[in-house]
Amino acid sequence: MSNIPENLKYTKSHEWVKDEGDGTVSIGISDHAQELLGDLVFVELPEAGASLSAGSECAVVESVKAASDVYSPVDGDVVEVNEELADTPENINQAPYDAWIFKVKLSDPSQLDGLLDAQAYQTIAEDD
């Protein structure tokens, strides 16, 4: 079974969200998602400064046989993107919860409460 840390929030579309405690969140894809995709070969990053709305497509993770959109779990502006992933997409396979893809400054911090907790996400991942 894939790893689903308790301290993170999740979405149905397999993103994880980490509250950085300063009004920003880090966002990546779950262990379960990287397992489904297989060896990643490319990550298309959002542009720093872009403003996102929850549910909008903002990045793409690509393996040899599949490509999957990453959706922003929240409203807000991109404050930083993980440029390292452009050269080493395999970081996501190796450590999905360290390999954040982008960071967003939240427009509405209360949106975090609407996201899934580890237990709820586990149920979804098992159904896949």
Binding site: E62, K65, A67
Partner: peptide, 8 residues
């Protein structure tokens, strides 16, 4: 190939 129609 992930650019292409049979995957994307």
């Amino acid at each position: 190939q992930a650019r292409e129609q049979h995957i994307r």
